[in-house]
Computed example of a mutant assay.
Amino acid sequence: MILITGATGHYGSTVIHSLLQKGIKAHQISALVRDLEKAEDLRSKGVHIKVGDYSDYESLVDAFEGADTLLFISGTEISTRLHQHENVVRAAKSAGIQHIVYTSFQRRNETDTSPLGLLAHSHLLTEKWLKESGLAFTVLKNNLYMDFIPSFIGEKVMETGIIYLPAGNGKISVALRSEYAEATANILVEPALHRNKMYDFTNVEAFGYDQVANYLSEITGKTIQYHSPTVDEFTQTLISAGVPSEGIDILSSFSVAQKQGELDVTSTDLENLLGRKPTTLKAYLETVY
């Protein structure tokens, strides 16, 4: 039995769809959800629905019973994630899970000096707990989703003609979330082949936002330029535009991380697991713009 956490989210639901496409029967899949109403589509497909919450250890133990392989999609609540992740690993061990596949994050810098330090802390400790658990594990070091690039360059980029981010000349290697999910499903089909391995989920090429500007100019016929302000200038500009502080922090942290080269990691791991090259940035931008 394969159990998917975060099953009603984009990543989890796409993994389940991929598993079904690959011939895994619905009755061999369980989906962990917090809200039963959101799981009706999965239930209608014949997938087992388990109710549980990362913050509720006992609910996890009950939900994990009978499963062999667990897809552990990392939590989104940063302030409580460390405790939640500890619950998941402990509950998996208690319930008899044999293999955990965990969605972690891509990085070069694992110290507190990283702009992604707040994000990194819970991931790094979770990886440590997995390695110490005695369970088989597979860690997916996911780079940023390509799907997020339009949010980073701004919804008004075609009006202003400017990509405005403090990312300097740094590069990033992104791929589609759906392709991360498809590769994850391939691992879940034959987990023994991926026992105690760590994979870099990136594209086979990296790019800077100057390249994004060039692609957009070519695709749309409008001249798009890239400007990299200081972080202070960027922050003040977005505050003046009414952008929430949380959004500013996310954009700033990932931009500075890119500027420092933390996300400039290319690998063929995703390509190998997909059995084809991931979608290119230009091809994706063509579908959006």
Rank of each mutant, 00 (worst) to 15 (best):
L135P: 12
T113K: 05
V15L: 09
G66N: 08
Y102F: 15
L32S: 03
G117S: 14
K50M: 13
R108H: 11
T113P: 01
S18N: 13
A95S: 15
Y102P: 02
K131F: 02
R90S: 15
A63Y: 06
E58G: 03
A31L: 06
R34S: 08
S94R: 14
T76D: 04
T76H: 04
H17Y: 10
V89L: 07
Y57C: 11
K22C: 01
E77C: 04
S74N: 12
E127P: 01
N109I: 10
L118D: 06
T126F: 09
Q28F: 10
S74E: 03
I24S: 08
E110V: 15
L19A: 09
L125W: 01
A91W: 02
A67V: 10
R107N: 09
D53H: 12
T103G: 02
L130Q: 09
V15K: 08
D53M: 11
L124V: 02
H48Y: 10
S30N: 03
Q21A: 13
A67K: 04
T138L: 02
F137W: 15
G134P: 05
L118G: 05
L116K: 04
I24Y: 02
V51P: 00
F137L: 07
V101C: 07
S94M: 12
L144Y: 07
V33D: 01
A92G: 12
V61N: 02
L119I: 13
K45M: 15
S55F: 05
N143P: 00
H17G: 06
L125V: 12
E37R: 13
A95G: 05
H17V: 02
F64Y: 15
T111R: 08
E86N: 13
G134W: 00
N87W: 04
F64L: 15
F64V: 09
Y57N: 07
N109Y: 06
G134F: 00
L125T: 03
G12Y: 09
S30F: 02
G66H: 08
E110Y: 14
T80I: 08
I24H: 05
I49Y: 06
S13P: 00
A39N: 08
M146G: 12
K25W: 01
G52D: 01
S30D: 00
I100A: 07
V47F: 09
G12V: 09
